[in-house]
Amino acid sequence: MHAANKGFGKVLAVHIGVIAGFFILQFIVPPFHAAMLTRIMVLATYAIGYNILLGYTGLMSLGHAMFFATGLYAAGLSVIYYGLPPLEALLLAILLSAVMSAAMGAITLRTSGVFFLIVTMIFSQVFFLTTLYFNVITGGEEGLVLTRYLKPISLGLFSVELTDSAVKYNFALIIFAIAFLFSLWLTRSPVGRVLVAIRENEERAEMLGYNIYKYKLLAFTMSGTISGMAGAAYALAFAYIGSALASILYSINPLLWTLLGGAGTTIGPIIGTGLMIYIIDFTSGITTSYLIVVGVTLMLLVLAFPPGIVGAIRRRWLRWLP
């Protein structure tokens, strides 16, 4: 058997282990940390989506807030204005994010390199400004709270409320697990291998006969759809939508989380997101200029570990990590 299949038991065990770990943590940690972990799982889902494009295809976007916010608003607004139950709102949001990212990909992927960065950012800013412009509907900067519109999730015989923190936690866990396992599947699938080939040497991949544009569009759409799913989960779990979540900061965040944890690793985005969210929480308790602290920490980490934390670990010790 070839090495690609040899270590898969181990790889799968690690990934299932991460999910199981999150599941068990809810029974161990105090409520404050459970709430932190809920947030981390939702935002890690966003980073996982982002990483498909940055880490596995080699395309750096500065406009993913657009997709995160597409999911966020699609879920939030459909709950508020159309009274959709949470899961239906989630599905609608995923669908709209897929359409939105496919359309945006079709346009932005005509550019490359720094132009791609700029074009994605510009579209995302347009989206952000649109959410502000229609503030009568979206609630603009202040945003809207979903709490009194959120219907229970019905699970056949019984139903659960998303306002319950344990439900929130496990809802976030399921969303996260879906994205996480999807990214693992992708790295081992024929598509994923071609995406890596494009990241490594686009010209050669094309001369092998791969339609680069088609594959990039597929990656862009998968990435945007998962980002949108994360946005929808955010709206539903935290019962809030607001245009700050569509701002450029939310395009930069997944980039930083992914780089810190390790672009092109399945686990990196989770470590990066978790670490950053705890660092921000910790430093904002001590100093008001926490963003500077965050920036400096990040620079040091990225300088010390250019491949990111998990990337460095993989390079040195665990070569079999996907």
């Binding site: 070839h2 090495a3 291998r193 490594e200 040497n201 991949a205 092998l208």
Partner: peptide, 16 residues
């Protein structure tokens, strides 16, 4: 010479 330098020999051929 134009190959996928950072990928293994096996991965290179398998892409083709």
């Amino acid at each position: 010479i134009n190959i996928f330098r950072n990928l293994s020999v096996y991965e290179n051929v398998s892409l083709a």
